[in-house]
């Protein structure tokens, strides 16, 4: 990559790399923006949903994924947890001067593959190059637009006392995979990111259980942070059962070593589901019927609590607060 690539270099990059990888009718037109022509086919009462996410990850390639696939999955999931079917993506690249073309090609190909398998089109985009040392290889920002069917109403503010809380699979895989890969910490069993697009799983779930009240993907800050956000938004407390929360043994062991709590480690392919308790069996059946939800579990319930605490019954039978941290997990043992 050359710094200050002019129009010609930029056009070349688009023609040689992005256009063939992301090929679709909107992109083929070569305009500054995309006309979302399929809108005409929206069912009556459907709504458009838009979400955006900037992706920064180190290392760029990690077990189970890379920044390209992650940039698709992250935004697709943000659209999907709104109850919408993701359709279109935009993609902006910020490239560090001198970044190897071959690596960029890998990232773009991976992105294209992820988009294809998620059934979304990357319809517009942009590229900027920054001076060496002013970026971390590649940053990718994506915006997604999807279509929400009539009647679907999901929000973090919808949790009600008595509802059940589920997670679609083991937590912490992505965060721990990234950390152990970045720091070259070798653990006995390799830890692989859970990065995946969840719209298929979510569509199946919503079809089977329209009563679902809240969907959230526990990305940055992990399960603990996301549940705290929901508790605050809904004005409720959440009671978790530690033994019910799925955590892979390798992730648990690595966290044990690192002194980290897997509940705060990011997931990129998990969804939190909150639904009325009478739908427990339906939710579990719908999740577990999908390959991405085979390890889904009911992990707790919504309770009344003026503090809006997320609390957890531990293996000892005690109860501890699962804090909403201001920043890092700061030591506190005095």
């Amino acid at each position: 990559m050359t710094h200050g690539a002019g129009g010609r270099a930029s056009a070349q990059l688009i023609a040689e790399l992005f256009a063939p990888a992301f090929d679709n009718p909107a992109l083929r037109r070569g305009d500054d923006g995309a006309v979302l022509c399929e809108l005409a086919g929206l069912p009556l009462g459907a709504r458009l949903v838009m979400a955006t996410d900037a992706h920064v990850v180190s290392p760029l390639f990690f077990p189970g994924g890379d920044i390209g696939a992650l940039a698709v999955h992250g935004t697709v999931n943000d659209v999907a947890v709104m109850g919408a079917e993701p359709r279109w993506l935009s993609a902006s690249f910020i490239l560090e001067e001198g970044f190897p073309f071959a690596e960029l090609k890998c990232i773009v190909d991976s992105m294209a593959a992820a988009a294809r398998s998620a059934g979304v089109h990357i319809v517009t985009g942009d590229t900027k190059v920054v001076e060496q040392g002013k970026g971390d290889g590649v940053f990718i920002s994506t915006t997604g637009v999807g279509v929400r069917r009539p009647g679907v109403e999901l929000s973090g503010a919808n949790a009600r006392v008595g509802d059940s809380v589920f997670v679609s699979g083991p937590v912490g895989d992505h965060g721990v995979a990234i950390l152990s890969c970045r720091e070259e910490l070798a653990f006995d069993s390799p830890i692989v990111s859970d990065s995946a697009a969840l719209h298929g799983l979510i569509a199946d779930l919503l079809a089977a259980v329209p009563q679902v009240r809240v969907l959230r993907d526990p990305t940055r800050g992990g399960l603990a942070t996301t549940l705290n956000e929901i508790a605050a938004q809904s004005g409720v407390g959440i009671a978790l059962d530690e033994s019910a929360i799925p955590v892979r043994p390798a992730v648990a062991a690595a966290c044990e070593f690192l002194g980290l709590d897997p509940l705060y480690a990011a997931c990129e392919g998990r969804v939190i589901v909150i639904a009325p308790a009478e739908a427990d069996a339906l939710v579990l059946a719908a999740l577990r019927a999908h390959p991405q939800g085979r390890e889904a579990a009911r992990i707790g319930s919504i309770i009344e609590d003026p503090h809006h605490f997320v609390q957890m019954t531990t293996a000892f039978g005690g109860t501890r607060i699962v804090d909403w941290l201001t920043g890092e997990q700061l030591p506190r043992i005095c």
């Binding site: 950390l179 720091e183 070259e184 910490l185 070798a186 653990f187 070593f257 690192l258 002194g259 980290l260 700061l330 030591p331």
Partner: peptide
């Protein structure tokens, strides 16, 4: 060995 690596890399070693 992992602890040694954590110390060397400064991973969660305040």
């Amino acid at each position: 060995a992992v602890i040694a690596r954590m110390l060397g890399q400064g991973v969660n070693c305040p």
